[in-house]
Amino acid sequence: MTPRCVLVLDPAAPRWLIANASAVLGASVGARGDVELGPGLVDATGSRWPAIAEIVVPVLAAPAAELVELRAAAHAAGVTALAFPDLARAAATYAELAAAMAATPAAEVHIHGLALLGPDRLVRGLTRGLRALGDPVTEAVR
Rank of each mutant, 00 (worst) to 15 (best):
V57F: 06
G134E: 15
A90L: 09
T127Y: 07
G129V: 06
P50M: 11
A65Y: 00
E96G: 05
P85D: 01
L114H: 07
I111K: 02
A77G: 05
V57R: 13
L114C: 10
G40R: 09
T127C: 12
R71A: 12
A44H: 11
A62E: 15
A95G: 07
H112R: 14
G46Q: 03
D34E: 14
L116H: 04
L70F: 11
H110R: 15
E108H: 09
L41M: 12
V141S: 07
M1N: 10
R128W: 06
G129N: 14
R71S: 11
G46K: 04
A72M: 01
R124E: 15
T2H: 13
G30F: 08
R121I: 03
G134T: 14
V8M: 07
V35R: 13
A115K: 12
A27T: 07
A140S: 06
P14Y: 00
D86G: 15
V123I: 09
P119V: 08
L87D: 02
A74H: 03
P3L: 01
A31F: 07
I55E: 04
T127L: 10
A51P: 13
A65E: 15
D120G: 11
G26A: 07
R71G: 01
R32V: 08
G33W: 09
A81K: 07
A88I: 11
E139S: 13
P85L: 00
V68M: 09
A64L: 08
D10K: 02
A90F: 10
H75S: 14
R48Q: 12
A90C: 02
I55R: 00
R121H: 05
S22Y: 03
G30N: 11
V6F: 07
P58C: 09
G38Q: 12
A27N: 12
A53F: 08
R48G: 10
A23W: 01
R15D: 14
A27I: 01
A91C: 03
A72P: 04
V6T: 15
H75G: 08
R131Y: 00
A132K: 06
T93D: 06
V141W: 11
E69A: 15
L70W: 10
A83Y: 02
P3T: 10
V29E: 06
A92M: 09
A88H: 04
L70Q: 06
P3Y: 09
D135C: 15
G38Y: 10
A95T: 06
V109M: 03
A12N: 05
V29M: 10
V68G: 04
E54T: 15
A90P: 01
I52H: 11
R15E: 13
P63S: 03
G33T: 07
A83F: 07
A102I: 03
G78Y: 06
D135Q: 05
T80I: 13
P50S: 12
R124C: 12
V35P: 15
R15C: 12
H110K: 07
P105W: 06
L126G: 03
P136K: 02
R89A: 05
T45D: 14
A91E: 00
A83I: 11
D34T: 13
A13M: 08
F84R: 00
A102M: 04
P58S: 11
V6L: 09
I111P: 04
E96N: 02
Y94Q: 08
A12F: 04
V59M: 14
H112M: 02
P3D: 05
A102N: 05
R71W: 00
V8Y: 08
G78P: 03
P85T: 03
L37T: 00
V137Y: 11
L117E: 14
L9G: 10
G40Y: 10
